[in-house]
Design a binder for these strands. Sequence first.
DNA 1: ATGAAAGCGCTAACAT
DNA 2: ATGTTAGCGCTTTCAT
Lengths: 341, 341
Amino acid sequence: MSQEKSAKKTTIYDLAELAGTSASAVSAVLNGTWKKRRISAKLAERITTLADEQGYAVNMQASLLRREKSKIIGMIVPKYDNRYFGSIVETFETMARERGLFPIITCTRRDPELEVEAARTMLSYQVEWLVSTGATDPDRISDLCAAANVGSLNLDLPGTKAPSIISDNFTGARELTRRIMLNSRARMGEARPLLFIGGRASDHNTSERIRGFRAAHADIGVLLDESHILASGYAPEKAEASLASLARTEGSLPNGMFVNSTISLEGVMRWIKRSGHYGEHSPVIGCFDWDPFAALLGDDIEMVRQDVPSMLDAVFLIIQNGAADRTLIEIPPIFRENFSP
Amino acid sequence: MSQEKSAKKTTIYDLAELAGTSASAVSAVLNGTWKKRRISAKLAERITTLADEQGYAVNMQASLLRREKSKIIGMIVPKYDNRYFGSIVETFETMARERGLFPIITCTRRDPELEVEAARTMLSYQVEWLVSTGATDPDRISDLCAAANVGSLNLDLPGTKAPSIISDNFTGARELTRRIMLNSRARMGEARPLLFIGGRASDHNTSERIRGFRAAHADIGVLLDESHILASGYAPEKAEASLASLARTEGSLPNGMFVNSTISLEGVMRWIKRSGHYGEHSPVIGCFDWDPFAALLGDDIEMVRQDVPSMLDAVFLIIQNGAADRTLIEIPPIFRENFSP
DNA sequence: ATGAAAGCGCTAACAT
DNA sequence: ATGTTAGCGCTTTCAT
């Protein structure tokens, strides 16, 4: 890595010399503690001007080493390729900064190894809190944090060793399923069992959503088909493949579907288009997650939006006030009629 | 901010005491420099085990303070709400880590003040390089970096005080325009002038794309209408509003459009749907940027994908080998037939 | 109203 | 083959 000029960076000692004062005075002026030190306004003025001229910037590494707290807060996130995680990251950054914290974020691409490596690195950087978003093994990360005396939090997917903030998946899925069935009935004349597709059966969110899916069928008195629950992963290709395979074995597919994420929806829509399976009569679809273009894809596509601002409010509330490790906070997702303008 | 336990963190001195050795030995073992120190394998072994047991993590603040280089590389990015920036961030993180660098990223929401504040903060954290992505005032950031002897780079939008890596907007836009016109001719029988919408006329990318747009019209010998170039901003609402306004004044809109980003496309598609302006005959569209759902929106929607991996290859190449400040690297965007599977 | 000095945890040159 | 020591740049008592 090449360095443009070889000049060293300006330090408070350089500034002190230029101002004809001491490093401690400079430090006090530059970090705002100088009122209690009763440093003269002219000295303060002189120092600030000088600092500006020299393009001085504190060395955080040195500053943090000396202080007790780093004010750094970390987050790991699986992907940046959808609106949900995108807004989680953006909101997290904004809220952290509003609270005087410095956010650092790492994308771990759903790779368990990368997750723990990222967690370790963040601990080295002295994060005071670590938020694991959609982590495959959140408890492992909580253990690492606990060993380093650092607070941890789970977001989106729950764990058992730190407070968790997630969507109310059961209630949300139940209502979403109800709506899909209503739409389907409006079109087909009668309520019919739906297909569930996407996600991993092993993860808490997916299993809760499947539970809500079942409950909604029971509510309406429709018997669902167990072989129509396809929790085959998050990647679009997975969804595409399992639809193809089901169509092959069963000939014809249900005309209503519950899709577990926009990422899975990508595969679903692609398959529908490519296969031509449904011909003119595209299926009635509901998706647990929101995307602006997907929303324009058809009239019969119902979407739920996870309430990211409320989820992160809860996160920062816990950071401020603490909470028991096994706390589970479930935030209701938002339906179409309550979408923000 | 509450701290769970009050125990202090383990340091190399604690480890040294437990292992009955010195801090420097521990340090050497833990950071891999111990081969050249000819430390015995058993000592090394003992120390590593101990470190594991104690959940030890180096204090980067201390380590970096002592070392000469931080290995930290910063990036500022406008938004996380579309695939283009999402993949820039994800690719940047991955490539940085592959090179032993620690990436820190800040989202500045197209806010010029936030941009410089973020840059300052990153300089405090001793970044060795700062990549400004889509910055509103990249030269300002380059100045800050220069004052701190830190390298800077512009991505997506060029500047004049640091090397810039951008898409080949002119050529890309010219070819995209040509394709839209071809599609339009195939449908309407004759080539007609298109509408240009989205972006800011003041930014380099938009003006280059408009230049390409003009060139393609000239190539085919079609006269374009200057009042049909609507560079009214990036937000979906802006696009929506300017279409509405144009439709009001002109009655009818061109049946082919060049849309300058997926974000603008969001507004365009919404307006088309809400207004019902085009009735059954939806317009032929081309978009400078790619989104998987937008791609499924219609048969006549052509998209170009900016070549993010190549752009970031160029970024890291410059970081390794250096380049003159005014270097401008233009990466050809990718058309449909060359999309990766 | 301001300066001197100690020390945060780590690394690297210099001992042995 | 391993220990001692001098800082890295900053903050913070404690003197004055």
